[in-house]
Design a protein around this nucleic acid. Structure first.
Lengths: 340, 340
DNA sequence: CACTAAATCCAAAACGTTTTGGATTTTATT
DNA sequence: AATAAAATCCAAAACGTTTTGGATTTAGTG
């Protein structure tokens, strides 16, 4: 592996000059610069990023911490699409991305911050982390710049990106109401997720605005899991035949509700309307296809990476980036056909 | 950021001793080792992996090159699941994973090998690369250890992992034949993919074994894309009403075929059986759900990472790891109901 | 031509580790 | 007590870059 020393030797100059020539400094004549470049190509030189990182104290690397990067996440293409967005933006800005494994045995012994510090990443993106994850606090309090997706934290060198979950939920519920629904339940995710809180907020606000009485026991907990949602929905639907629509805080849970309805022979959407959240790939292919609040997952990742690198560059920027969401109307919703 | 120098200073020993104490060498007394460890904890020391890489010439990092890591890949959760497998195995073996962006403008100017060399990754995993990708050859011929998924290349420090595609195709086609089908078309992917060749091989072999005449124009090219497959299938089905089954080289293309059949009002599976390949998440949720040749995508990634690290360690191993695939029978296949 | 300014170059230090080869101290053996 | 062996420690070099501060050469000016 050739180094700048080798180049210096054969080009007959000092290593300083090689370094400065290759890095485009002005204090080297065009003639020698060209010679050096030729020699470099000749010797198949590629710079050693490790050595460079060491001396410059900048690794040009950002870390990605995904809380639950496992096959479970495959149904839910959320993680993957965010990753794609991050990857693309990071590439554009000439950084590299290092994936931290957080589900291995290692995790118990090495904390996030230790991982980050050891690898000298310049910043880190956190995804899928629960609000009560002890490591979340740790990272925030460390001096490592970070941006987290879907948890609203800001601070010096810490920001977040999310979508407007209250607004998304409002759009969904209002749409149901506009279709004539009055008996609307909500299948929420676990309370530890910030998005659950916000979507519930939107649900409640919309009911109030429309003067529909709120029933606390109509807010179910599907834990963001399909099977759990199915089980809970099964029980709920059996005992509340008057419900005409269910707003779900995730598509996966909506699919669970669909299954429950099928089991009970409740036709969707004619007797029951179902709305999901996220617009995962499955939403489009399910039968009936899911009406859902779409989030631009790729954009979330793209913005997260951009924000982080802005933070690193100390660029003046808004530490909170909130994206719009929009309702995608498909087959799982319809006018309320039940007699009141 | 504290260094071993700091530790040495406050512990009153040399940096050599600190290094050797922290790394568990035997030539340091238990007493001083403990003191050093205490001081290290006290000062919140974390080792600088960059500096270590430089001197040891081992980065403990492997690179991942995914040819088409973009939202397109989201439907197809293949990429993601492989990634999960890689990530897990890499974590177990205490390596880190760095993602290389190959779809940016950068790519044109920096080759794969340059990227790898700059970052001093110890090895690299290539996924989704086409057999005619110029960079493929480049990486193989470089001295960088690598394993590629689904392209059969071996050599010194290069290996691959794949599933037995001939066998998988055979299982699928034989199953159709056992159901009474004789008029079986194949929707293949583009020829640049190794798996296309093998799946076709299995298709042809099975027909021959069962003495079913082969019709070359019954082998269609869906380019591994849903829309393309739909278009091609539409045309084919219109002109060949005698076909009773279609074996597809990917689930995505099978979904395209399903759509075409729907458009033409051909009921699946009663009038047309369809088999896919891969077992992506959508396969289970499509209507009708897809019978398919399932590949353990997670395992592919897991094996790839394991193989690469074995290669790095110069461990004696088989450079080709072929996994089994198995037929998952769902709703898109049925007995041949057409009159001959 | 003499002098200054600009252009071009370079030696050495620094980044934070690991490792080598030896020095010093302690322990064991006679 | 003298010696050998073992245990414990350390100074210095090395990894491949960038950067600092200055040295040398060239060009420009009167």
């Amino acid at each position: 592996m050739t180094t700048i020393k080798d180049i210096a030797r054969v080009a007959g100059v000092s290593i300083t000059t090689v370094s400065r020539a290759l890095n485009g400094y002005s204090d080297v004549s065009e003639k020698t610069r060209r010679r050096i470049q030729e020699v470099a190509k000749e010797l198949k030189y590629s710079p050693n990023a490790v050595a460079r990182s060491l001396v410059m104290n900048r690794s040009k690397t950002i870390g990605l911490l995904v809380s639950e990067i496992s096959r479970e996440g495959a149904k839910d293409n959320f993680t993957f699409e965010v990753l794609c967005g991050i990857n693309d933006r990071v590439a554009e800005l000439d950084y590299d991305l290092i994936l931290f494994n957080t589900n291995s045995a290692q995790q118990k012994v090495k904390s996030y911050t230790q991982l980050c510090r050891e690898r000298r990443v310049e910043g880190v993106i956190l995804q899928g982390i629960k609000t009560d994850d002890p490591y979340l606090e740790e990272v925030i309090e460390s001096d490592i710049p970070c941006v987290v997706v879907d948890v609203p934290i800001t601070g010096n060198k810490v920001g977040y990106v999310s979508t407007d979950n209250v607004d998304g939920a409002k759009k969904a519920v209002q749409y149901l109401i506009d279709l004539g629904h009055q008996q609307i339940a909500m299948m929420n995710g676990h309370k530890k997720a910030f998005v659950s809180q916000k979507r519930k907020e939107g649900y409640l606000a919309t009911l109030e605005e429309n003067e529909i009485p709120i029933k606390e026991d109509w807010i179910l907990n599907g834990e963001f899991r399909e099977e759990q949602a199915e089980k809970v929905a099964l029980y709920f639907l059996r005992n509340h035949s008057n419900v005409t629509a269910i707003f779900c805080a995730s598509d996966l849970m909506a699919l669970g509700v669909l299954k429950a309805a099928k089991t009970l022979n409740i036709p969707v959407p004619s007797q029951l309307s179902v709305i999901g959240y996220d617009d995962i790939v499955l939403a489009e292919y399910a039968t009936p296809s899911l009406t859902t609040v779409a989030q631009d997952k790729y954009q979330i990742g793209y913005e997260a990476a951009g924000l982080l690198i802005d933070l690193l560059a100390e660029k003046e920027t808004n530490n909170a980036r909130i994206l719009k969401s929009n309702l995608k109307i498909r087959q799982s919703t319809d006018f309320n056909n039940k007699k009141a």
